[in-house]
Design a binder for these strands. Structure first.
Length: 216
DNA sequence: GTAAGGATGCGCT
DNA sequence: GCGCATCCTTACG
């Protein structure tokens, strides 16, 4: 087993669907003020090239989506809905805009920090204190189960756009971990592309780890 | 437990 | 100006 080894650039320099599927079970790490915040990747979506009308790159190269055109193994972090950051990892080769959106993590390290960060985002003071002081493992599972939530929990924002995940000393990177068994991986259409024309809207380019054995 | 609607600001036409 | 790769709160059962 190779737990703890940082994924090399060659991992990302492959077809985006392969990278998206193989990212499941890997560990995303943000070293924040010297402390590791991390979680296992549970859900990911592929966005593949200018021809993919669900991909930000469909409009051509712009200041916002510039990172997607760069070398694989870099972060593409964008801002949306007036308040949320989302994290992608760039794939394939420089010059071809393709990336994998990380949509959900199972929290691993730094859970107390994640709780605090997420609680600060909540609107009502009563919800804040209730959520912030809750210690249930059940609610901790949900700390990073959305693309904007995982960025909030790990403290990822636009300052990390373009960050090289493969460079020695990187503060944001992905570590190898035991692969999710093929039969436990589910795929389906990507989320939030209601206005996108077919066939792109229905491409089954979303992958997630099936967790039907969850204790209830 | 699910469903509906508001928040919020930047990128792009 | 419009629309967005979203999340949270409230209401209802």
């Amino acid at each position: 087993m190779s737990d703890g080894r940082r994924l090399p650039r060659s991992f990302y320099r492959r077809p985006t669907l392969v990278v998206a599927r193989e990212l499941l079970g890997k560990r995303l790490v943000h070293v924040d003020r010297g402390r590791r915040l991390s979680g296992w990747i549970m859900e990911a979506e592929a966005y593949i090239g200018q021809e993919d009308l669900g991909c930000h790159a469909r409009v051509g190269r712009t200041e916002r989506n510039r990172s997607m055109w760069g070398e694989p193994g870099h972060a593409y972090v964008y801002f949306t809905y007036g308040m949320h950051w989302c994290l992608n990892v760039v794939t394939e080769v420089a010059g071809r805009p393709a990336a994998v959106l990380l949509r959900a993590l199972a929290p691993a390290e730094g859970i107390a920090t994640m709780r605090r960060r997420r609680a600060l985002r909540l609107r009502s003071p009563s919800a804040r204190s209730a959520q912030g002081s809750r210690l249930s493992a059940r609610s901790d599972e949900r700390l990073a189960d959305g693309p904007a939530k995982l960025c909030q929990a790990l403290g990822i924002d636009g300052r990390l756009d373009g960050h090289d995940l493969c460079r020695a000393g990187a503060r944001l990177f992905i570590e190898d971990a035991q692969a999710v068994p093929r039969r436990a991986i589910v795929r389906g259409p990507r989320v939030g592309l209601d206005g996108v024309p077919e066939p792109w809207k229905s491409k089954p380019w979303r992958f997630w780890a099936d967790v039907t054995n969850r204790v209830s």
